[in-house]
Amino acid sequence: MLGSVTLLLERLGARTRHLAGSFVYAVGFGIEVARQLVLFLFGKRPAFRVLTLQILFTGVEALAIVAVLSLSLGAVIIIQGLSLLPQFGQAELTYTVLVVVITRELGPILTAFIVAARSGTAVATELGTMVVNREIEAYIATGVNPIAYLVVPRVIGVTVSVILLNVYFNVFGLAGAFFASRPTAGVALWEYVAQLGAVLQVRDLLGSALKSAVFGVIIALVSCHHGLLVEQASTEIPQQAIRAVSRCFVLLIVVNAGLTLVYYL
C-alpha cells in the first residue's frame, strides 16, 4: 500500500517536473524566437530564401484547397441564408451572416486548420528529421543559429501565408456566394457588392487579419517547437508531428474563442 502511494507520488512529481521543464523550455524558445525575429526584421536576412520557400510551400501550394473550400462554403452559406432567413423576415441579414461567417469566423480558423494540417506537420517533420540527422548540431557547429536560420523564417512564412490565405479565403468565399446567389436568387453583381459593402466594415477585415496573424504564429511556434523536441530516434518524428497538429488545433480553437470574445467586448 505504502509502496504504491510512493510510486504514485514519484510519477506525479516526475510528471510535474517534466511539465514545468517543458513549459520553461517553451517560454525560452518563444523568447529566443522573438529576439531572433526582431533581428531578422531589422537586420540582415540570410534566411530570406528559406522564408520565400516557406511562403511558397505554405501559402501558394495551399491556395487551391483554400479556394475550393471557400468557394463551396460561401455558396452553401448564401443558399442557406437566402432560403432560411426570409422565413423570419430577415432576408437583409443574409449578407451580415455571410460577412460574419466568412470574414470574421470561418475564414481565419479554417485557413489556420488547413495550414496546421498541411504545413504544421511538414515543419515539425522537417525539423525533427534535421535533428535526427544531426543537421542542427552542424548548424551550431558552423556558428549558425538554428533558431534564426530555421525557425524565424518558418514563423514569418507561416504567419504571412495564413494572413494571405485568409484574404484569398474571403475573396473566394464571397465570390462563391455571389456565383451561388446569381442563379438561385438572381442577384446582380452591383447589388451584391452594394449589399456586401453596406455590412462589411474595415474592423471586420482588420479583426480577421489579426486572427490570422495570431493563428500563424501559433502554428509556426508549436510546429517548430515540437519538431525540435525530437531527440534521437526517427520514430519520434511522427509522434511529435501528431502532437504538434493536435496541440495546434486545440490552441487555435481556444485562442479563436478568446479573440472573438475580445472582439465583441
Binding site: 511562403i55 511558397l56 501558394v60 491556395l63 504571412v160 494571405l164 484574404v167 484569398y168 475573396v171
Partner: peptide, 17 residues
Amino acid sequence: IVGLFVVTALVLVAAFI
C-alpha cells in the same frame, strides 16, 4: 510566384477597402 501571390493578395485587400 511568392511575389505574385503576395501582390495579388495586397491588391485584393486594397480593392476591398
